[in-house]
Design a binder for these strands. Sequence first.
DNA 1: GTATTACTTAGATATTTAGCTAATTAAGCA
DNA 2: TGCTTAATTAGCTAAATATCTAAGTAATAC
Lengths: 98, 98
Amino acid sequence: MASARRDPVNLLFKALRDPTRRRILEMLKERDLTAGQIGEAFAMSAPSISYHLDLLRHAQLVSSRKHGQFVTYSLETTVLDDSLGWILDLMKKGKKRK
Amino acid sequence: MASARRDPVNLLFKALRDPTRRRILEMLKERDLTAGQIGEAFAMSAPSISYHLDLLRHAQLVSSRKHGQFVTYSLETTVLDDSLGWILDLMKKGKKRK
DNA sequence: GTATTACTTAGATATTTAGCTAATTAAGCA
DNA sequence: TGCTTAATTAGCTAAATATCTAAGTAATAC
């Protein structure tokens, strides 16, 4: 069993558990944003936002690139396939797939 | 904004965050099980299992009914629609739905 | 080169979470 | 009426989480 600290599915659900992080993902769905722009939307210190962004990055839900002093974050949707598959599978209740 | 303690979406993601609880849901996908049967599958005390089942019930991911001394748990898939919708929506990145 | 701006890292801390043992409730059985 | 079994509730605790302030890094502007 993949160690929980590295298991992508676990990291994903961990990342999605927090309302602030889900809000960040919703914002990034619309357009790429810098750390600063994301922070403006929350009544929270910059380091706290940085912490959430880092966690999202570890879950591979966002990517970041630096240009100058700025760091721009983008939504990465590919890893969402996993959780989608997991949930869809649960919903096929009883229909023993395999 | 719905208080996080009651917000169904928040309760749902909170419930899905734990590997033990995800495992329980996978087991209940196959068939209804009593608390005792679920507990047998884990190296964990009965009260701990009870705690997880309670949390899943609050998230409306499972329902329970008592018959005799036994309590049987069933998977409830309807609330999964919400998270499914949320994730699908994220995946429609940029395609400003509305 | 120094100051400013944008962001992250480090360190501290209150709260939440997930586990345990012990105690309780409730049903079944002799 | 007790005894046993199934499960939950209560109370405790270690670890994880989310927040903060202070300090550090790196790019820009003067």
